[in-house]
Amino acid sequence: MTALRPDLRIIADNIDAGSRVLDVGCGDGALMAALRDSRQVRARGLELDPANVSAAVTRGLSVIQGDADTDLADYPSGSVDYAILSQTLQTTRAPHLVLEELLRIGRQAFVSFPNFAHWRIRMSLLTHGRMPVTRLIPEAWYETPNIHHVTIDDFRSLIATRGWTCDGEWFLSGDQQTSRGMANLLAEHAVFLLRR
């Protein structure tokens, strides 16, 4: 599990052994494979990109090619312990509805996303007046899949508006965990654990 992306590492470390997981936007299945191999987790995945799906199925994982915006409706309510949405929220057409689906399918949901209010992004926008291109948001505005940029404070506000419960939050800067204090300014990346 050493090669896991830092946000996935946090999620992996906080999932109970033997639990059932749905990884929405699972990529090539790196997290699912790690969870299966180290924690005997029964993981299923949903992924848009066919090459990623092939790679995941080739690793022996159960992954379905599909779209988080349209293909979650069929999953039964409460059918998994954790629904996971890592670095995918900002690419969905209706993030709030995707999150509702996640919280319906899973008893709890892990959500990770790049924080658009990180100071480096703010500085970039302030000094250059151009859409920022950073390590975590590497594409130019016209080709980025990130169509719904979000900040940590925006996300907290959505949690409050929707009446969800936050069971945990973790923040990352330069791949290291960082404190809650001024996270909206100092964290590049956030991981939330939610339930309805």
Binding site: D74, Y75, P76, S79
Partner: peptide
């Protein structure tokens, strides 16, 4: 696949080109 998901079955699906 939608039916398998609804039934809670362990399923994989990919469309190849």
């Amino acid at each position: 696949v939608h039916a398998l998901n609804a039934a809670g079955a362990e399923a994989s699906f990919v469309e190849l080109s």
